[in-house]
Amino acid sequence: MTDVIQTAAMPDTATARRPRWRKQLRENGLHLIMLPLALLWLSPLIWILITSLKTNAEVFDQAAGFWPDKLNFSNYPSTLSVAPFGTYLINSVIVTTTILAGQLITITLAAYAFARLTFPGKNLLFTLFLLQVMFPIYAIFLTNFVTLREMGLINTIPAMIVPFVASGYGTFMLRQSFRQVPSELSDAARLDGCGHMSILWHVYLPLVKPTLIAFGIISVVTHWNDYMWPLLVTNSESIRTLPIGLGLLAKADSGADWPRLMAGTTIVVSPLLLLFVIFQRRFIDSFMHTGVK
């Protein structure tokens, strides 16, 4: 039984020539290094969870052990009572989904033009799109803030959305996928009398679904977690997002009430981490293949 699994798992030619015990030894040796490393990587998350179940006295008491004396869940209701996490959650959902919807429209249209149409200035325009990748909001936040102030959008939900509606990166990703669609398919559709828009909708979009999902996941993770820009353009509680709410709570507490703060952190990191655990393959694939094409 074990024999069957072993040979199925390792079809390399070397297994025949090298003694199996050496391979075993090598693999166990690797686990010996990787397991502690993985635990090290997980330890901040473990500390968040454990600390959120402690009492404040236990955190500062050096004689107290790693585990809480008894599990203390009261930090969670306490966090929810000092900060309106429900409102923050709704705002985060609105901002993230609106950005994604806007991006999907703009990048689909632009990517089709770059992948399948000929027009003067194509290369120049494509370079201009890629420029946006080099100049993320972190590099140009100052003037964008001034612009939004002149538009009267500061401290509104749209202020958190509009700078991200166009995506040079998304356009690039989708253009690559569109170009891999065999042109015979669209030629056939053209002969049947389909226009560009209906070809885009009926032929191209269904074929590039994996790319759309991958881009969607990356966009959601980026903007769900975004801190700097929402921080700069909002100043009232009713429109703030989850990360900003957490930052405010930290400032108010300033390290005085770690268990409550860690309970808040758990609430903020949970939605994405849960989605990640459930759709692990999709998440991993999305981030994995951003580099290959």
Binding site: N225, L246, F283
Partner: peptide, 19 residues
């Protein structure tokens, strides 16, 4: 292992900084 090393990417920078 892959998920154990990758999960920090999912954590908001503000939460990571605080922890």
């Amino acid at each position: 292992y892959r998920s154990a090393f990758f999960y920090p990417v999912m954590i908001p920078s503000v939460a990571a900084g605080m922890v």
